[in-house]
Computed example of a mutant assay.
Amino acid sequence: MDEYSEALSHYETALDIDQKALPPNHPVLASNYNNIGAVYQKMREYSKALSSCERALEIQNIALPPNHPSLADSYNNIGMVYNKMGEYSKALSSHKRSLEIKKTALPPNHPHLASSYGNIGLVYENMRDYSEALLSLEKTCEIFEKSLPPTDPRVAQSKRDVERVKKKM
């Protein structure tokens, strides 16, 4: 509904409650921080978004095994913020770390892998490295076509992304 201030208020209230009820490195707190970071990203307050997402990752690194899927989500969130900030090498590093975790935790044609390849491709596109962007975006398209019904909007979007990058080459 684009009511970011309202959402932020509720997420901060949830965080306050959970901080009182849970140990300081409980994974639920990380989830709260990721939610807050997502709202800040929507509000284009990228430094606050990054801070929240990094706090989530700190907690997860303490509370979870090293290749837990939630870590992949946090690295993805951090990568998205860095991409919005124009810090492409940091974005790429975070997205690649997310992908590596997902590769250990998910089957080879899982849609979440495709999303990671897509995020990597978009960063390469922003860096104007169109050949690398195309490789990643084609991988996205390939996985989505294998794992999703043809009517899923992600299939069509991945094809549009590939065509857009081809035109830039």
Rank of each mutant, 00 (worst) to 15 (best):
S5V: 02
E6R: 15
A7E: 15
A7R: 12
A7G: 15
L8T: 06
H10D: 15
Y11R: 14
E12Y: 07
A14Y: 02
L15C: 14
D16A: 15
I17L: 13
D18W: 14
D18M: 12
D18Q: 13
K20P: 05
L22V: 03
N25L: 03
N25S: 13
N25C: 09
H26C: 06
V28A: 12
L29I: 14
A30G: 14
A30D: 08
S31D: 09
S31K: 01
N34M: 00
N35D: 10
N35I: 00
G37M: 06
A38C: 01
V39G: 08
Y40A: 09
Y40I: 03
Q41F: 09
Q41C: 06
K42C: 10
M43L: 13
R44Q: 14
E45I: 07
S47A: 13
A49S: 15
S51H: 12
S52Y: 11
S52A: 15
S52L: 09
C53K: 15
E54N: 11
R55P: 00
R55Y: 03
A56F: 01
A56G: 13
L57I: 08
L57H: 07
E58Q: 13
E58D: 15
I59C: 10
I59E: 11
Q60G: 08
N61T: 00
I62Y: 10
A63Q: 06
A63C: 00
L64Y: 08
P65H: 12
P65I: 13
P66D: 13
N67G: 11
H68L: 10
H68N: 13
S70V: 07
S70Y: 04
S70N: 13
A72L: 02
D73T: 14
Y75N: 06
Y75I: 04
I78M: 09
I78E: 03
G79I: 00
V81N: 11
V81G: 11
Y82E: 08
Y82K: 09
E87W: 00
S89N: 11
S89E: 10
A91N: 04
S94T: 05
S94G: 04
S94L: 07
S94P: 02
H95R: 07
R97I: 01
R97G: 02
L99A: 04
L99S: 05
T104R: 12
A105L: 02
A105D: 03
A105I: 05
L106C: 06
L106A: 03
P107V: 08
P107I: 07
H110Y: 03
H110V: 05
P111D: 00
H112M: 02
L113E: 02
L113G: 03
L113Y: 00
A114C: 10
S115E: 10
S116H: 04
Y117K: 01
Y117W: 00
G118Y: 06
I120M: 01
I120K: 06
G121T: 07
L122C: 06
L122V: 12
V123K: 03
Y124C: 09
Y124D: 08
Y124T: 05
E125F: 00
